[in-house]
């Protein structure tokens, strides 16, 4: 086993372990912190696949912005054992069924995945670098890229509209 394979295996194990801790830890703030750690480890996996841009954007967007907001809300809510809503058995059953269905879909999707060695890339070492990514985004995938940006603007406008409406009611 080459050294890069050992690193990849260790990283994968760490990622899965910290992702498991997100659901297993009892305290919500601890859960979010494990989720942040998971995002950092996923970024490390990206670096190993030579996708530096994706790795750093993952940290900027998820660990840097979205998770800060998550943590922000959870700190304000001040959740603890005493005021935690009790989940009934039916709720627990429904949650396990939903999660189980998701697992089946994921396994089915990954069943046909092709296993490539970690080191070898089809387009050489520069595959995931930002120049090539930009070229692809603005030539081959320009339509999906621009469409998703319209989607984001719609979501933003919607959020602004909702908050404005609420304010008028208060007034």
């Amino acid at each position: 086993m080459s050294s890069i394979e050992i690193i990849a295996l260790a990283l994968g194990a760490l990622t899965i372990a910290s992702a498991l801790m997100v659901v297993l830890s009892m305290h919500p703030v601890r859960s979010v912190l494990y989720l942040i750690l998971t995002f950092f480890l996923i970024s490390a996996n990206y670096v190993l696949l030579n996708a530096q841009f994706l790795a750093i954007v993952n940290i900027v967007v998820y660990a840097g912005a979205i998770m800060v907001l998550f943590l922000f809300v959870l700190m304000l809510l001040n959740l603890s054992k005493d005021n935690e809503p009790r989940a009934s058995n039916i709720m627990k059953l429904a949650a396990s069924l939903a999660a189980g269905a998701l697992v089946i879909v994921l396994v089915a999707a990954l069943k046909d995945a092709i296993y490539l060695p970690v080191v070898e890339n089809v387009q050489g070492n520069s595959q995931g670098l930002v120049e090539n990514l930009g070229q692809l985004l603005f030539t081959k995938y320009v339509l999906p890229f621009e469409t998703s940006s319209v989607l984001f603007i719609a979501a933003m406008v919607g959020a602004v509209l909702l908050s404005k409406k609420e304010k008028q009611i208060i007034d």
Binding site: Q52, I56, I59, V60, A63, G64, V68, F72, V130
Partner: peptide, 25 residues
């Protein structure tokens, strides 16, 4: 000399707040 150096600085300046958040909470 990573080819995304400036994004790296952005990323670290945004995660730097975790020290304050975690310590404060």
């Amino acid at each position: 000399d990573v080819n995304i150096g400036i994004l790296y600085i952005m990323a670290l300046s945004s995660v730097a707040v975790y020290g304050i958040m975690i310590g404060g909470w």
